[in-house]
Design a protein around this nucleic acid. Structure first.
Length: 787
RNA sequence: GGAUCUGUAGCUCAGCUGGUUAGAGCGUACGAUUCACAUUCGUAAGGUCAGAGGUCCGAGUCCUCUCAGAUCCACCA
């Protein structure tokens, strides 16, 4: 044996041995209860970071149960990570000077597919590098056809149960990313913005967004507010920048009398709160901002007999960005004497796109929603009945809080990379269907139904396609023969008005159908992971045997996004909880307790650490001295310290081997330790260390059962290093050297069992050492039995 | 506004349902070592467990309040 342990020389070999030996594949035994964990699927296209390395918790539990003889499954997978991935891909496109709008839908999807699959193997090899004993024969991807089919079934069932509805709602829209988001994905930031006080008929109102006031539909006051009582219910003509607007004064108790002037304008199309008021009082939703984040005054310019002054203004505003138009409007307000004052020190919180940092624009849109409350209530009940328990316990409270506060879940995303919503609109039945269509770098809006109705059966005869009239007059516009397939692929978006009818189906119900262009929020599919993976498994009976899973282990930061949704959808689809225990780990921070980020340059790359100090050292340092659910600081020093421990184990092994070799040379036979042998023990040192070991062992067993992995790790660490190496070895050195069979037998027994106890934590070095032990029976440590 | 977490040795953190002299890793000081390991060994210094009050025979551990830090959610123009 070498003087020092060299992880590089052993780890890859050992992983191969395990994988090829088929030890990661569960040994199904119907008489035993299985132990199952699903790996939270990492993004298929991304490298692993330290957060992923925390999956070591799962590997420890898996290896522990495997050694205990439970049929054990740890199922790996990859997530398509819809928006995240498309975002990364678009950034790569931007570097080439391109954007997603340069491709039709099908090509874009295929390009992203290729992009993801080029990178996917990297992530999987990194999981291997860390020693994770995943059953690769069951590896699965969120876009595998079987998974998609299951997601579709869920959607259909939800719809049939009236838990999914389509509705015009204000969505959190990022005009830069071109998609809407769920509430969870909006980040807030404190900003100082001017608060404009402006004359509004007989009132003064305060607003930070003067640009939306052109489409105000009402004024609202608090019914208790004496100042405005006489106006309630009255209809007024209010002088604005583009002439008078007619609106009614409504009373609603939600209006804060203290804020600003106590009177608020209601803009249902661009404010969540106003939208709700609008719904309550039946106000029209009239947008003035487009999905590109530009001002839209076409509604005004289409009017007849507009005074020239106002027409000029509207033309000036039209098509401009909000930031450009706001100062112009302020100028015009001053000009007209409508501006009362500006409060420059007003701070408020505004919503930002969590990805691009763009201001989120609430815009009205037809979207698909999941009615969350019935689903969430079922989960709350299951938690109350202890069908799901949390480690640590406090997360139960948090989960309940989440489940209580969830709004209806917007599952529509205006992106291509994902599972397309299986909704089909009949072109014939929905004459108002609007499509955006792109070909040959020309985006055409138009009435495709005319085209499709002409000859829906035969492809290749769509010359009658007119496109929109503006384009038709454009001499650069080319009419081309489109096939039906080309039309389907070239569709940028289908906008179906509220009254549209539709069919839910995985495939086109007929030729005259166009599919919804939105895709599902990634979490809608990953929320079905537990049953979807097991149902889609290539091995028959997996779902029946392994579902529900035993432990769901993940970072606490995705408790609401993922864990709660899995619980909701799992319970809904299978009537059983998808997992019995939820173990949540904390964030890994840098040595100073700061969040790791690329910009701070304090990121520790787990793969680099594994290369430098060994995967075992990295694994151990992530467990050692940390508590479930708490953030932890990780320094390279700590990893180095754990590397030293691996080396200590190595050298105990080396010491043992040298002494066994010496004994062999003298023809001394060392017996194996067993109960009968134990009775023949005479030396008090041997007896005592065995007793101590047995106590330590039962302590470790108890800790493992309670998910107290850090305590288990520390207990073994302490015993191996400070009890065995520092004391027992030193005190009995002469006996070992003399080849005392009893002493050596006891030592070998202790050592073998320490390696076993330690194996879940440090699988590589323990396996390597175990196989070197004199008299090894040929069973790899990974499948040997837990002491 | 609501909620959660954290505050224990110089640093980073353990400490389960309250019970003997409060622990680890790293760091520090001094010393040892060709004998498994310098990725080593020994010895030592270092904490009024944020503060105050309370419950208890007994509290770092439970309760209340205060202070400090972090995080999450909601969000009023």
């Amino acid at each position: 044996m070498d003087k020092a342990y060299d992880p590089k020389a052993t780890e890859a070999e050992i992983y191969k041995l395990w994988e090829q030996g088929g030890y990661f594949v569960p040994k199904i035994d119907k008489t035993k209860e299985p132990f199952t964990i699903l790996l939270p699927p990492p993004n298929a296209n991304a490298d692993l970071h330290l957060g992923h390395a925390m999956y070591v918790v799962e590997d420890i539990l898996i290896r522990y149960h495997r050694m205990k003889g439970d049929p054990t499954l740890w199922l790996p997978g990859a997530d398509h990570a819809g928006f995240e991935t498309q975002y990364v891909y678009e950034k790569a496109l931007a570097k080439e000077g391109k954007s997603r709008f340069d491709f039709d839908r099908k090509t874009l999807y295929k390009n992203i597919w290729d992009f993801v699959h080029q990178n996917r193997g990297t992530m999987e090899n990194q999981l291997r590098r860390l020693g994770f004993s995943l059953d690769w024969s069951r590896n699965i991807f969120t876009l595998d056809p079987k998974v998609v089919a299951i997601v579709y079934q869920t959607f259909k069932k939800l719809y049939d149960d009236k838990l999914i509805y389509r509705g015009m709602r204000l969505v959190n829209y990022c005009t830069k990313c071109g998609t809407g988001f769920s509430d969870l994905e909006v980040k807030y930031e404190e900003r100082k913005d001017p608060l404009y006080y402006m004359k509004y008929g007989p009132f003064t109102i305060a607003t930070t967004r003067p640009e939306t006031k052109f489409r105000d539909t009402a004024l609202a006051v608090n019914p208790k507010d004496k100042r405005y009582k006489k106006w309630i219910g009255k209809t007024l003509d209010i002088q604005g920048l583009l002439g008078p607007i007619t609106m009614t004064v409504i009373a609603d108790p939600e209006v804060d009398m203290e804020f600003g002037t106590g009177i608020m304008k209601v803009t249902p199309a661009h404010d969540h709160h106003d939208f709700e008021l609008g719904q309550k009082y039946n106000l029209p939703v009239t947008p003035i901002i487009t999905f590109k984040g530009r001002m839209d005054f076409s509604w005004f310019l289409a009017k007849k007999d507009i005074p020239e002054k106002y027409r000029a203004r509207a033309e000036l505003y039209h098509g401009k960005k909000i930031a450009e138009v706001r100062p112009l409007m302020v100028e015009h307000l001053k000009e007209d004497g409508l501006l009362v004052k500006i409060d420059e020190n007003y701070t408020h919180r505004i919503g930002l796109c969590y990805k691009s940092g763009t201001v989120i624009e609430p815009l009205p849109m037809q979207q698909w929603f999941v009615k969350v409350k019935p689903l969430a209530d079922a989960v709350k009940k299951a938690i109350k009945e202890k069908k799901i328990t949390f480690v640590p316990k406090r997360f139960e409270k948090l989960a309940n809080q989440w489940l209580t506060n969830f709004h209806d879940w917007n599952i529509s995303r205006q992106i291509v990379w994902g599972i397309r919503i299986p909704v089909w609109y009949s072109v014939e039945e929905n004459p108002k269907l609007k499509i955006e269509f792109r070909y040959e770098d020309v985006t055409v809006g138009g009435e495709i139904q005319e085209l499709l109705q002409h000859n829906p059966q035969s492809a290749g005869d769509y010359r009658t396609f007119k496109g929109n009239t503006n384009r038709a007059h454009d001499e650069n516009y080319h009419v081309k023969n489109f096939t039906l397939e080309e039309i389907q692929n070239g569709i940028q978006s289908v906008q179906a008005p509220p009254e549209s009818t539709f069919v839910i189906s995985a495939d086109a119900p007929g030729n005259n159908y166009l599919q919804e262009t939105d895709t599902f929020d990634t979490w809608f599919s990953s929320g079905q992971w537990p049953f979807a993976t097991l149902e889609a498994s290539p091995f028959k009976g997996d779902y029946e045997y392994f579902y529900p899973t035993s432990v769901m282990e993940t970072g606490y930061d995705i408790l609401p996004w993922w864990v709660c949704r899995m619980a909701m959808l799992g319970l809904y689809r299978t009537s059983r909880v998808p997992f019995k225990t939820v173990y949540l780990h904390g964030l890994v921070r840098d040595a100073k307790g700061q969040k790791m980020s690329k910009s701070k340059g304090n990121v520790i790359n787990p793969l680099k650490m594994a290369d430098m100090y060994g995967a075992d050292a990295l694994r151990f340092s992530l467990i050692f001295g940390t508590a479930a659910g708490n953030d932890q600081s990780l320094s390279e020093d700590k990893i180095r310290g754990m590397r030293n421990f691996a080396n200590k184990l190595w050298n105990i092994g080396r010491f043992i081997q040298m002494n066994f070799d010496a004994a062999k040379a003298q023809n001394i036979t060392v017996p194996f330790y067993n109960e009968a042998f134990h009775k023949t023990l005479t030396n008090p040192n041997d007896k005592r260390i065995i007793t101590e070991f047995n106590m330590m062992k039962s302590k470790v067993g108890k800790y493992m059962g309670n998910y107290r992995l850090s305590d288990a790790a520390q207990t073994i660490y302490d015993f191996a290093w400070h009890r065995i190496a520092d004391v027992h070895l030193e005190k009995n050195k002469e006996r070992f050297k003399a080849g005392d069979p009893q002493a050596l037998a006891v030592l070998r027994h202790l050592y073998m069992n320490i390696l076993k106890l330690l194996h879940p934590f440090m699988p590589f070095v323990t396996e390597a050492l175990y196989q070197k032990i004199e008299g090894w029976d040929g069973t790899p440590l990974i499948i040997s039995s837990w002491p």
